[in-house]
Design a protein around this nucleic acid. Sequence first.
DNA 1: CATTGCAGACTACAATTGTCAACTGAAATT
DNA 2: AATTTCAGTTGACAATTGTAGTCTGCAATG
Lengths: 125, 125
Amino acid sequence: MPDNLASKITDSELEVMKLLWRAKDALPVTVIREQLQESKGWEPATIKTLIARLVSKGAVRQEKRNVFYYSPVITEKEYSSWATKDLIARIYNGKARDLIASLVSSDGLSQDDIAELRDMFKVEE
Amino acid sequence: MPDNLASKITDSELEVMKLLWRAKDALPVTVIREQLQESKGWEPATIKTLIARLVSKGAVRQEKRNVFYYSPVITEKEYSSWATKDLIARIYNGKARDLIASLVSSDGLSQDDIAELRDMFKVEE
DNA sequence: CATTGCAGACTACAATTGTCAACTGAAATT
DNA sequence: AATTTCAGTTGACAATTGTAGTCTGCAATG
């Protein structure tokens, strides 16, 4: 995990992180609750547990106002880049190109994707 | 998970799978045990548990000879391709190209990788 | 100001995961 | 044939994860 993290962000917790990443500013539980109750059908208690766990593992910071406001400590980029490298280490023996080869050969990429990637690598120095 | 799987292969179990994937033929516990005891420092009991769990979740098949011989049901390619798509779904909103963009922009690729990928996409129809 | 609603803290509980020990019966060894 | 060695099975136990209930005190609202 990103080394600022005590331990891994779990799947459920990740849903909370996604919401916080999308938000421009820190959010109070009220807002987080509303959205996740709606989108995930979770009970308020569940949502509060997830937030508390994220705070305790250092992925989310709380800021005292009238009520706590929560915001991500690690960025989405940091996390996704870590998760990707972790996958590469665990499954592709550390070889990033093997990951991409796998995508290409297992039709994980659309024609559009491939076109775009061709461009990407053309420009790339 | 690959839909032939009852549930996800865990990290420890994956070590067993890797060994089985590397092997040409089915292996008896003796051989699996020797290697993992060596490479992972696991107790025989641990290794036997992992094998049993893999069998019960359908990732490994056992073949009765004098003693059981074990071989993978899902291939390494199937698994890694599934794991990759799963990552893309969970973290990159289903967009494979975002994964690759993340790799490129977070220096997850060496110059060599990039060169090779440029070739890959040049040839690619 | 009394009432209500909910944030925050604590507790709970089943399922999964990482590790491993004990037992049992068959195969190998003496 | 008696002994030893494991494979295979079952059980175990702590930590993590998914999901949620309860309680307490403050803040908004009538």
